[in-house]
Amino acid sequence: MKKSVIITIAVVYIFAIVVVGFIGIKIKAYNTPEFVTDITCVSDNFHKYDPNNPVHKKEMEKTKNLIGYIEEEFKEGLKITINCQVTPDNATKKALTFSVDENPAAYKLTPTSDGSATIEFFVGTEVIVTIKSTDIKGYSIKIKVTAFERNW
């Protein structure tokens, strides 16, 4: 390295110490992520379980994080849409994932672009939908969706 370059470095180095020491450099703290702490279903046909109802209470005890249900009569082409919202409003990652136990003969789950999901039923059956936040804590709830058809 040329001597002039080394001198330049040294001069800049010393100057910087003086400047920075007096003026400082503006810094901001890391923005701590806001994790999702709750998910609620806002679909019109959603019914939240009532812990005072003995049957509802048993449902919630039997299936962890199960918060409610949607039930409709099965008919060909039946599609049920699930809309959810997260808490807090300023959650860093508001996107949700929807997942089910895959059963292509019975139903098909399709996430939509607006953050909800639609289940198309091919037969009368029931499916548990897990809705999970996409942040690293992964808060989740479950909803029972039934397309009722007398199959016995």
Binding site: S99, D101, N103, E126, V127, I128, T130
Partner: peptide
């Protein structure tokens, strides 16, 4: 009415 994979097995798969 319906039989599905146990909830914890579904969680495992997910």
């Amino acid at each position: 009415y319906a039989v599905a994979l146990a909830d914890d097995f579904v969680e495992f798969n997910n």
